[in-house]
Design a protein around this nucleic acid. Structure first.
Length: 472
RNA sequence: GGGCAGAUGGCCGAGUGGCUAAAGGCGACAGACUGUAAAUCUGUUCUCUCACGAGUACGGAGGUUCGAAUCCUUCUCUGCCCA
């Protein structure tokens, strides 16, 4: 894998040079640079092997000795598990997904495991409390959602030698009886070993204790690895760093039960420089499902990254090469206000998750709302207003506006605020604008004269939350 | 089965009869400053109400008292220890 591969990209480069030589005219010269820049931005560094690259990107926390050698030696099958705790993945799962994508790009075979069985147990890792069990119905629904999303990001083309595959651990656990499990699996791992795991230790020292169910989680996940090792020749497991303990139980099981050798590495948990939780906004989790988090909101999330975070995240969440990223970081340092890092990051990751069309819409909406903020709202055309994809739109009866209505009631009735009291508080705090004009009196009456194009009202809650009210 | 400790607002945590819608901190939201950053400063943060005000609330139920987060009884749950 380490050897330099002749690539399409190199081919492309040569072609461009060729063209240059054939038509050494000035316009082509300009064009040439545009292409070169695009070229630089798109290609991951060819000099590094997979592990080196992931290390540079800051995507490796712990790694088992021998993993790098194994990956360099042959096409290796590797897996990551996703437990169906919700019917959509959120951006926390993006890093594991990207690990699989990198892996496949490097010529290895990725397995995406949906945790139909493990989801029934509940992973104690990183949790300070026992969790409620999900009902089978919910789990089934969630599994379908998660599966559908995973399908989008990896190449499942069956003809590929390293085609991605989807597996569900429920398939090998559903007929595994309790007695068989404790004899075949439990016998190989001591309780002492299990208790030494961080996730278990923390709970034993903590206040809430831990049920036997969650205690067994590491065995269940460990067995997954063993099963994949036996049936799919899967030798590598990856995951978030909180999974390290569970993963190691798997390699241990493979060693003791099958006498085989398996490998692992984990990626660090994504953090924010200010210590806040990654992936949360005012409105909650950032999901990968466009119905839960619109592409516009998704794009905005990344655009709002702080400088420190953007520099870290652009390495993790984009496929840009080291050179390209170094260039962007320099550019950003020279002119931080332009926020090239945030913009590039947001573009790349939105395109990866939602596609180019959705990205274009997200950018268009962003421009309308933020680029000309000083321009009066009246300057927005009907098309501008209607075309704001991702902005929350709601309908309102025109008669009520014509008749005149006070702002507070209006805001409560449009469901922008859950109650009049909250609407009033926000107005008094100076956090509300209509048609880009700050509202400072709760008694203000809304009537026809406020309507843009006799139809629309653009309401702003805080600086970044926009609502479009359509009156009919 | 027995003993001990505990359960307070999203979280942590003070409060041991009226001054308690409950200190303080964190988190969250908003404002100012800025770059739709960060840091800082300011405000808001149980629910409803334009407001006066009303309602609900210190694990559940019952009791003592003019008055209970605070005292008593009982139940539930959690942790620790002993069998």
């Amino acid at each position: 894998m380490e050897a330099k591969r002749p690539t399409i990209e190199n081919e492309l480069f040569r072609n461009i040079l060729h063209q240059m030589a054939a038509f050494p005219i000035l316009p082509y010269f300009c064009n040439f640079f545009a292409v070169i820049t695009a070229y630089k931005l798109k290609i991951t560094d060819l000099e590094m092997n997979l592990i080196e690259e992931l290390r540079w990107r800051g995507m490796i926390q712990d790694i088992m000795p021998g993993t790098e050698e194994q990956l360099n030696k042959e096409m290796t099958s590797a897996y990551i598990g996703f437990d169906p705790t919700a019917d959509s993945l959120h951006i926390g799962s993006l890093v594991p997904i990207l690990l699989l994508v990198h892996l496949q790009k490097a010529g290895h075979k990725p397995y995406a495991l949906v945790g139909g069985a493990t989801g029934m147990v509940g992973d104690p890792s990183g949790k300070s409390e026992e969790r409620n069990l999900l009902s089978e119905e919910v789990l089934k629904h969630n599994q379908e959602g998660v599966k559908k999303q995973l399908m989008q990001y990896l190449d499942f083309t069956p003809s590929l030698k390293n085609a991605a595959e989807m597996v569900n651990n429920y398939d090998w656990f559903k007929d595994f009886t309790f007695l068989d499990f404790i004899r075949d699996v439990g016998k190989h791992i001591t309780v002492n070993y299990m208790m030494s795991k961080d996730s278990v230790k923390k709970r034993l020292e903590g206040e809430t204790g831990m049920s036997f169910t969650e205690f067994t989680y590491q065995l269940v996940q460990g067995y997954d690895f063993y099963w994949l090792y036996q049936h799919k020749n899967c030798k590598l497991q990856m995951g978030g760093s909180d999974q390290w303990g569970n993963i190691v139980t798997g390699t241990e099981l493979i060693r003791r039960k099958a006498g085989g050798e398996a490998f692992a590495f984990t990626c660090p948990l994504i953090t924010k420089a200010d210590g806040g939780k990654f992936g949360k906004t005012e409105s909650g989790n950032v999901w990968l499902d466009p119905l839960r988090t619109t592409p516009y909101q998704f794009y905005q999330f990344w655009l709002n990254a702080s400088d420190v975070d953007a520099e870290k995240w652009i390495k993790i969440f984009t496929f840009l090469s080291k050179d390209a990223i170094d260039m962007l970081i320099d550019e950003h340092k020279m002119n931080p206000a332009a926020r090239v890092l945030q913009k590039t990051l947001a573009q790349e990751i939105t395109a990866f998750v939602h596609g180019n069309a959705a990205l274009a819409e997200a950018i268009a909406t962003t421009e309308k709302l933020f680029e000309n903020q000083s321009a009066p709202a009246e300057s927005l055309s009907v098309e501008d207003l209607e075309g704001m994809e991702g902005v929350v739109k709601s309908a309102f009866l025109k008669e009520k506006i014509t008749a005149g209505i006070d702002v507070v009631s209006f805001l409560a009735e449009t469901n922008i605020f859950p109650s009049k009291g909250e609407a009033k508080k926000m107005i008094q705090g100076g956090g509300l604008s209509i048609n880009r004009k700050k509202i400072d009196t709760p008694q203000l009456m809304i009537d026809d004269s406020f309507l843009l194009h006799e139809k629309y009202l653009l309401v702003q809650k805080g600086k970044k939350n926009y609502y479009l009210i359509v009156c009919n």
